[in-house]
Design a protein around this nucleic acid. Structure first.
Length: 283
DNA sequence: ATGACGTCCTGCCTGC
DNA sequence: TGCAGGCAGGACGTCA
């Protein structure tokens, strides 16, 4: 499921591929998830040029030259594919069954396309005035970005302390505290920091906050470098899976031995979501 | 205010 | 073997 590293991967690639391109048209086969009135969306994106692509939390923002921006959230199974005359017949596009779930297509004047695939149809897109992007509730309420250079151990602790009675595992998923972390990377970061997900925020020591910050940032940076985690669904804009799943220590490894101490990795419900940890390494 | 749960959606896994 | 039911999951909405 796309979290910060997967969204950053898509943004990095789109920045190289579509900035400067002119949109010819847009079509959706699942208009329900086009959260702006459809006719307006279609009319406003047509003939607009792409000025930039950026990430806000887990949102993708495509800025146009007509003072409007397309905001996209991939949710769990969404991914964006960029197809050209050259790569349109590439194996990953032709053979991947997930390409049977393309619901929204932008076509550029040069004939290339940006295609939004989403098996579970949770993802959405909308059009806003660029100046109003930051006012969108899910963006306005974002906490500091997990990879912001301004985020240090003290600030991490301070942000988390806003929900001090919650568990650290739950607090890490709260986008209003720290933006960008999802279910995969919270488990991985806590494992690397040697902290149990169930620990209350208020119980963490200064020493633990100082371990958690680099654990979190290093995990996210390495995942960006490896173009994210593909746990089934995620694809980059070339239709290729990420590589970070090969380096996961705990996520998705419930019942398997810890790579450090061989203790069986536990999978447990925390709040509503599954969290993975090693009793010994995170004790 | 906070927390618990329902909602969206569909492939996959489990159990009978 | 087949089919029904449950589960997963990001973030918002609703209810207590």
């Amino acid at each position: 499921m796309p979290e910060l590293p997967e969204v950053q991967t898509v943004v990095n690639q789109l920045h190289r591929k579509i900035v400067g391109k002119k949109i010819a048209r847009f079509h959706s086969a699942w208009k329900k998830k086009v959260l702006t009135p459809y006719a307006t969306f279609v009319r406003k994106v047509a003939n607009a040029n792409v000025r930039g692509v950026r990430r806000l939390g887990k949102h993708i923002v495509i800025d146009l030259d007509n003072d409007h921006s397309i905001v996209i959230h991939l949710k769990m199974t969404g991914h964006l594919l960029y197809k050209t005359g050259k790569n349109r017949d590439a194996r990953q596009f032709i053979e991947d069954p997930l390409n049977g779930y393309i619901h929204h297509i932008f076509t550029f004047h040069d004939g290339t396309t940006l295609e939004f695939s989403d098996m579970r149809k949770f993802g959405w897109l909308r059009l806003l005035k660029t100046a109003e992007v930051e006012v969108l509730k899910s963006i306005q309420e974002l906490g500091i970005d997990a990879l912001s250079p301004r985020l240090n151990a003290t600030l991490l602790q301070k942000q988390m302390a806003r929900k001090k009675r919650r568990s650290i595992g739950e607090a890490l998923l709260d986008q209003s505290l720290i933006a960008g972390v999802g279910n995969i990377y919270r488990s991985e970061a806590l494992y690397r920091a040697g902290i149990m997900p169930e620990r209350r925020v208020e119980s963490l020591t200064d020493e633990e906050w100082r371990r958690l910050l680099p654990a979190l940032k290093t995990t996210l940076r390495e995942a960006v470098r490896l173009r994210g985690t593909t746990d089934g669904d995620f694809r980059d804009t070339d239709g290729l899976p990420g590589q970070f799943q090969k380096t996961l220590h705990v996520y998705g490894r419930g019942g398997k031995p810890c790579q450090k101490c061989a203790t069986i990795i536990v999978r447990k419900k925390l709040g509503q979501r599954s969290v993975f940890f090693c009793f010994r390494c995170q004790g």
